[in-house]
């Protein structure tokens, strides 16, 4: 899993780390039970404050994405969100709303938007399969 930050995005740095870990988990670049980089090396590599990485990991733990094993580090958890299903759906709906607003401003039509969603889902599926195949090869 490689994290890349962009200070020009205007998005809080710790949230960039949170979102990229989640994206890595969704695409299979990071698998259940795999360790996340430890805080200090990651902070040094990204040239950010240690507190920022710690804050991102705390947020990920709060969201149930990772778990901390004392003395061993942080690991990706089985995908069991601590939130109730209706709340999870609502959280996703908010993200979709933001994408819809963006699509409207960029004059992307509804049909194209839906096609794009499907295409992106398939793209994630494909990388996921590729990662799985690679994992099997290694075994």
């Amino acid at each position: 899993m490689l994290i890349q930050l962009n200070f020009k995005s205007g998005k809080p740095v710790y949230l960039q780390v949170v979102d990229q870990v989640k994206a890595a988990a969704a695409s299979g670049a990071l698998r259940v039970g795999e360790p996340l980089p430890s805080i200090r090396p990651l902070a040094e590599e990204l040239r950010i404050n240690r507190n920022t990485v710690a804050k991102a990991y705390a947020e990920l733990e709060g969201q149930g994405v990772i778990e901390t094993v004392p003395g061993r580090g942080c690991f990706l958890k089985e995908n069991n969100s601590p939130f109730r299903k209706d709340i999870r759906l609502k959280m996703v709906a908010e993200e979709i709303d933001a994408a819809i607003v963006q699509a409207h401003h960029l004059r992307v039509e509804d049909k194209e938007f839906l096609a794009l969603v499907k295409e992106r889902l398939e793209a994630f599926e494909a990388t996921n399969k590729a990662h799985e195949a690679k994992a099997k090869e290694q075994l």
Binding site: R40, A43, E44, R50
Partner: peptide, 10 residues
């Protein structure tokens, strides 16, 4: 500076 602050916050 990264090394120094990283070591300090360790």
């Amino acid at each position: 500076i990264q090394t120094v602050i990283g070591a300090y916050q360790e």
